[in-house]
Design a protein around this nucleic acid. Structure first.
Lengths: 197, 197
DNA sequence: GATTTTGCGATACAGGGTGTCTATACGCAA
DNA sequence: TTGCGTATAGACACCCTGTATCGCAAAATC
């Protein structure tokens, strides 16, 4: 496992731990032990404690990495869009796809993140995790731009609208059908429209 | 603790276990042990195993009871309404209030159920729990009636709309402000309207 | 190339949670 | 009152945890 330098080795082990944890969670659920993670990663159990304090820290780090990836994909998806309305729809559609991504590819060990996210939220309810907050901020910005262009309602704070979207789109995890996902995005998008009359 | 008959005693202990578990979860999060539950309930740890197989079974039973109560409150709330549109708004508003109920009254030990619900969903993803499905069915029926009356869109299956509502309204847990909750209900309700044009 | 530094694996230990077995005490029916 | 079913608590072995320690290998430095 020793590649070149020390720091790179630590980075390799770090990601290997996160990958192993993801695979174990996908197989056995949230009831993962430090022993299982160490054994699956191929390192000593005591060594694992040099990298992470406990299981929760590992799961949290893994979730953080997942959401960071989602954030990058979201940024990439809306980068090409110039029209505020299209940017908004693209963002929602991309997030809906990410929400249901885990269920379609269980082999990769990428479970749905929403369950873990809310499970962890019990302990750290007050402040959302960094990456998750970044996603919220990104969507808030997109909605604000759309609202300035008259494409979204202004009687509700954009931050609340973003929270509404993020929660509503998690329903995409229940139905992996792409058509259903499109319908969900459409319905969610309708909720953002200014009240008629 | 022995009241009258045996069966009633078992029922008393059963509810006492669920109450203790709720209190412990509200205080320590999901990391609850059988030992803690037994000690807090005032019974032997081995006795606890006669009532429930493991912690997950207890949490699941508690969640089932919570959702059942929610279902009753929903039914009571919409019972007085005759107009389909008002029935729909009342149902959504009531559910939004229930979603954020736990955070305002931590003393009662009634934590927010959404986090536990999705955390448990990791293990039993395919089939929702009985009571939760009942809530979904109830909302589906309300939406169907509203759609028949022309108050809701018909291009999306009512079941999907119900799922959309249930997920979107869980955003109410983030902001305990009643005004924000009303805005959320309004936005969610807008998503149910038929597409303009 | 030798020395120092650092990371790593293995082992051992105490503390606590888990699951099960068994003996005791009590309600209940005959 | 006697026997049966049942609830209950104590006890046992097992596993996980968190930490401390030791020896080894490899990197970093001189």
């Amino acid at each position: 496992m020793w590649n070149t330098t020390v720091e790179e080795h630590r980075r390799t082990v770090h990601t290997a731990i996160l990958d192993s944890t993801a695979a174990l969670i996908a197989e056995h659920g949230l009831a993962v032990t430090m022993s299982q993670i160490a054994q699956h990663t191929g390192i000593g159990r005591a060594t694992l404690y040099k990298y992470f304090k406990d299981v929760e820290a590992i799961v949290l780090a893994w979730h953080e990495r997942q959401v960071s990836d989602h954030l990058c994909q979201l940024n990439a998806a809306i980068a090409e869009c110039t029209d505020p309305a299209e940017r908004l729809r693209t963002a929602l559609s991309a997030y809906a796809g990410l929400s249901s991504a885990g269920h379609s590819t269980p082999h990769t060990g990428v479970e749905g993140t929403s369950a873990v996210q809310t499970a962890l939220a019990l302990h750290q309810a007050p402040h959302l995790h960094h990456a998750q907050r970044h996603v919220h901020d990104l969507l808030t910005e997109v909605i604000t731009v759309a609202a300035d262009a008259g494409m979204a309602r202004t009687d509700v704070p954009p931050a609340e609208l973003a929270s509404y979207c993020l929660h509503a789109l998690t329903a995409a995890a229940a139905s992996p059908s792409p058509a259903a996902r499109d319908r969900l995005v459409d319905v969610t998008l309708t909720g953002l429209l200014p009240p008629a009359g």
